[in-house]
Amino acid sequence: MEKILVIEDNEDNLAVVESYLEDDYHIVSSDNGEDGIEMAKKEQPGVILLDISLPNMDGVEVLKCLKEDEECKNIPVVALTAHAMVGDKEKFLQKGFDEYISKPIVDDEELMQKIETLLRLKK
């Protein structure tokens, strides 16, 4: 089973993602950026789902650390965020996220499909 790291500070929303994915993937999670980076290094997940509005270190900073890290730079990172104004998707893709999924997650199949594509691309 592929490992997915979810970095999300909102417990309820973490639970939603876990519920969607737990049947198909092994989920590991962190509620803040700093721990999330450590966990990514240790666990080497196939994909990271990263919230943007996180305490202390926001998602964009976390992404920067991940992409600068030798061990983590090849792990695809998905922005999973409620920042969904016009132009947000472009903004996050430009910052280097490999995918963007807006909250609320309306279509769980799309979520799965995007994760699958990233996993296949990584191989």
């Binding site: 309820d12 939603v16 104004m85 609320p104």
Partner: peptide, 21 residues
């Protein structure tokens, strides 16, 4: 508007997500 959107979407994620599951 951006904040409002963000703050409304966050709880909606749980409402829509869990009811869906």
């Amino acid at each position: 508007l951006a904040n409002m959107s963000h703050e409304l979407r966050t709880p909606l994620n749980s409402i829509i997500g869990f009811s869906n599951i």
